[in-house]
Design a protein around this nucleic acid. Structure first.
Length: 103
DNA sequence: AAAGTGACGCATT
DNA sequence: TAATGCGCCACTT
């Protein structure tokens, strides 16, 4: 049942993201003292916990994830828009205004 | 144990 | 600018 403590750490970080803010895989990876951003996305991919705002986690350049597990990046974008988060492109969040780097 | 996988990141072509 | 390759680290089979 417990995949690994690593996942919990990821979830913990993501859960700390306040509404209206976003963060990147790389930033979370650094917070966890690792270099692998892939693990972050992976942890969120298998995640089913609605308490984890995975839609607030984007790529380095604010890019949304193609493989979002609930309907694709379009669903993610919809949620972000709901939190007043602005987009610089269809698939890119405006990190300059909403980046949360105080994990 | 070895090989394969993965919602990324960065360098190079 | 876009596309491709390689690296990274933990998990699954």
């Amino acid at each position: 049942m417990n995949k690994s403590n690593f996942f919990e750490k990821v979830y913990l970080k993501v859960k700390k993201i306040p509404p209206g803010k976003v963060t990147t895989y790389g930033l979370i990876a650094e917070s966890l003292e690792t270099k692998d951003a892939r693990k972050i996305g992976w942890a969120l991919h298998i995640n089913k916990d609605p308490k984890v705002p995975c839609h607030r986690v984007v790529g380095k350049n604010g890019k949304l994830a193609d493989g979002f597990g609930m309907g694709g990046w379009e669903e993610q974008k919809k949620r972000l828009l709901k939190e007043r988060i602005e987009f610089s492109d269809e698939k890119h969040v405006d990190l300059g205004k909403h980046l949360f780097n105080k994990l």
